[in-house]
Amino acid sequence: MIKVGLILGIAGACRTDELVNLTVDDIEDVGSSLIVKIPNTKTKIPRIFVVTDVGNMLELFRKYLSLRPPHVKHNRFFLYYKAGKCSSQPVGKNTMGKIPSVVASYLKLPDACYTGGIVDYNRLHT
């Protein structure tokens, strides 16, 4: 979930709420790329972006989507993923907002101070 959230978040410069509200129907897999529609934005201007197959990004997306349980009754794209399985519970705003800090910790960046998509570069380089 974290890797796919990072891929879509960076490729589309998405806000946390945009990722949280993303539905399965907002993403179209056209084989060599993904077409992602963000219908509800803070600025009220819908946008579309494309994710191309760089590295194994599309493979990660497809693997995550294939783990989606068939009994899920909602359409939200991001579901909690734990112990190799997706649950039917959608990912919330706070969990999605922690992705930058999780990535920073994984990369062992000093004083990981990532909140709301804003990085305090002065604190990182002191």
Rank of each mutant, 00 (worst) to 15 (best):
D53P: 03
N21G: 07
L6D: 02
N56R: 11
R62V: 05
G97W: 05
E18T: 00
K82Y: 11
R62C: 11
H125L: 14
Y80E: 11
P46A: 08
T126N: 12
K108S: 13
I27L: 02
I118A: 04
Y114P: 13
V102Y: 03
L6E: 03
K73H: 02
A11C: 07
L79R: 07
T41M: 12
I7T: 06
L67W: 04
T43G: 14
L107F: 11
D111I: 10
H71N: 15
K37L: 15
G92E: 02
L58P: 14
D26I: 01
E28A: 07
D25P: 00
L79W: 08
V51A: 10
G55R: 12
K63V: 07
I27H: 00
K98H: 07
T95G: 09
F78R: 13
D111C: 13
P100T: 04
T52D: 07
P46Q: 12
M57F: 13
T95C: 10
N40M: 06
R15M: 02
V36M: 11
M1V: 00
G55V: 10
D17Y: 01
G31P: 02
V119D: 07
L60V: 07
E18R: 03
S66G: 05
E18W: 01
I35M: 03
L8Q: 04
R15N: 01
F61W: 15
D17T: 05
E28G: 00
A13Q: 00
C14R: 00
Y64V: 10
K73N: 09
V119F: 08
V20C: 01
P69D: 14
K44M: 09
I118Y: 08
L22M: 14
T95M: 10
I2L: 00
A13G: 10
T23W: 05
N122I: 05
G116W: 01
R15A: 04
D17K: 00
I38K: 12
V51R: 08
S105M: 08
D29E: 02
I7R: 00
Q89T: 03
Y106H: 11
K85S: 09
L109C: 12
T41N: 15
K3T: 06
V30W: 03
D25S: 09
L65S: 15
K73D: 13
K82V: 12
A11G: 08
G117C: 05
R47W: 09
A83Y: 06
N21H: 04
D29L: 12
I48M: 14
V30I: 02
F78D: 08
K98N: 14
Y114L: 12
Y64S: 05
I48D: 10
P70A: 13
T16V: 08
E59V: 11
K37T: 09
I99N: 13
H74Q: 06
V102G: 03
M57S: 15
F49K: 11
A11H: 02
R123M: 07
A11E: 01
